[in-house]
């Protein structure tokens, strides 16, 4: 990863060990805005009030601005920052779910975003039928899914319940099903946004093991977590976002030290982060 818009200079040791040809993620001048406090239009306002007064116009809020990131193959990138800093928006932009309003994001390879696992399941359909639909959303081809299906069902540990409507599933069972489908295919870029708390303790351990395997095989892993301890144990590089801008980026230990020091200086509660168990991330 190289710094372009970072407020701190990049130490030589933080340069990725990859040649430029190994670049997997290349974001330049990335900007994404939302309308702050916007109200949806009504048919009446659409027909009769096409130009609202200046004062009532929604203001643009930049969720991300001037973000430059370049990540090479073999890196694990942690994203830290306070709530509303733009972490999830950055994940959505990298995953191709959200188009940038400014700049570009170029991701090379298959991206697997583990965001909101199992969302959008149809309660009237069985687990097996939902696997087919969810896999199609994730871009898994039908012929590939036929081969993957037994493994997905086995990993989910749902047994005979797989052919029951998921209306009767617990939230943990649905999350397990979602995780099993989403991680069934080996991605080039894996994006994790606070998704490691899935199911009960044994299943969480199983998830962590699978993610560890995927991390070893993926070319790039992007992790969003509030657990500095977990990021410190997992990431090679990190980026600290503050109000949508890159505050600093580079080698994980240095960025996380800076971030942690800032958090501790701002809030006594931040001290607790030092003692977080990476396993609970």
């Amino acid at each position: 990863m190289t710094a372009a818009s970072s407020s701190s200079s990049e130490p030589p040791g933080a340069d990725p060990p990859n040649s430029p040809g190994d670049t997997v993620l290349d974001a330049r001048g990335l900007g994404v805005w939302y309308r702050a406090g916007h109200q949806k239009q009504t048919v009446r306002s659409l027909l009769f009030n096409r130009k609202p007064a200046e004062s009532s116009r929604p203001k643009l809020k930049w969720a991300l601005r001037d973000v430059d990131l370049r990540c090479g193959s073999g890196q694990t990138l942690g994203i830290v920052g306070h709530n509303g800093a733009g972490k999830s928006t950055l994940c959505l932009a990298i995953a191709g779910i959200l188009e940038p309003d400014e700049g570009t994001v170029d991701v090379r390879g298959r991206v697997c975003p583990l965001l909101g696992l199992g969302t959008g399941f149809n309660k009237d359909l069985t687990g097996r039928e939902n696997i087919r639909t969810y896999a199609a959303f994730l871009g898994i081809k039908r012929r590939d899914l036929d081969a993957l299906m037994p493994g997905i069902i086995e990993f989910s540990e749902l047994g005979d319940a797989i052919d029951q409507p998921i209306r009767g599933y617990s939230s943990g069972m649905r999350a397990r099903l979602g995780f099993s489908v989403a991680t069934a295919v080996e991605p080039d870029v894996l994006i994790l946004d606070e998704v490691l708390a899935v199911g009960d303790a044994p299943f969480r351990a199983k998830c962590r093991a699978r993610l560890k395997e995927m991390m070893q095989r993926s070319r790039l892993i992007v992790i969003v977590s509030h657990s500095v301890a977990f990021l410190r144990s997992t990431c090679t590089h990190a980026v600290w976002l503050d109000q949508g801008r890159v505050r600093t980026q580079g080698e994980a230990s240095r960025v996380l030290d800076d971030y942690q020091a800032w958090v501790v200086s701002k809030s006594p509660a931040g001290e607790a982060m030092e003692f977080e168990d990476a396993e609970d991330a």
Binding site: D124, L125, R132, T133, A135, A136
Partner: peptide, 21 residues
């Protein structure tokens, strides 16, 4: 390009609409 998704969605909606009927 996403005809698999289109087919899966139509199939899922049809199954869901007739589920239990």
């Amino acid at each position: 390009k996403r005809r698999d998704l289109l087919a899966a969605l139509v199939s899922a909606e049809l199954r869901a609409s007739s589920a239990g009927m």
